[in-house]
Amino acid sequence: MARMKFLCDADRCIECNGCVTACKNANEVPWGVNRRRVVTLNDGEPGEKSISVACMHCDDAPCAAVCPTDCFYTTTDGIVLHDKDLCIGCGYCFFACPFGVPQFPEQRAFGSRGRMDKCTFCAGGPEEPGSQAEFEKYGANLIAEGMLPACAEMCATKALLAGDGDLVAEIFHHRSTSRDGRPQTWGWATAYGAGLS
């Protein structure tokens, strides 16, 4: 079975933050919590590139590896989810995550850390899909309704793609080849040298 993947095509991303508000719209995360963010490098200078980042749903997820309460699970197609009832809000996963994804909503005054919140690939969590309980804890479960993550579906320029990794790759490959035959994705030159095509 193929894996679900996010891909942000940095050549298409214009940092419009549509993915960020689409996520808020679908999941109604509270003020101050952003499951998805757009990061801009070289902001305001030649070479400026933006990329939208959320949980990358790692194959070998460091958050899951370090979790003292073992609250993470991975669906067969690679969506990393967690059970908030088990989460103790320790922040170890935040420490482990290479992308700074886990966030801890304030639940009370004076900044006490709440249970970890992160992107669910719009797949909710361990509750009855579409139930009020699931929505309150994890946000929407669009996957269960046959839809894909709101951020990618609503991306202004179709830079952000989410779905079966093979299909995502097919689109990206097609675009890459039409760009003078050379993928101009961010980091290509760094990884393979500027002269290589």
């Binding site: 963010r37 995550c97 700074g100 961010w186």
Partner: peptide
């Protein structure tokens, strides 16, 4: 490797500009 230089997590948080201002607004 395709992502190029390693991702600076703190930059991610900083970039949002929300951690401080957002809380105050919240």
């Amino acid at each position: 490797a395709a992502l190029g230089k390693p991702f600076d997590r703190r930059a991610l948080i900083k970039r949002s500009g929300l951690t401080a201002g957002g809380t105050a607004l919240a």
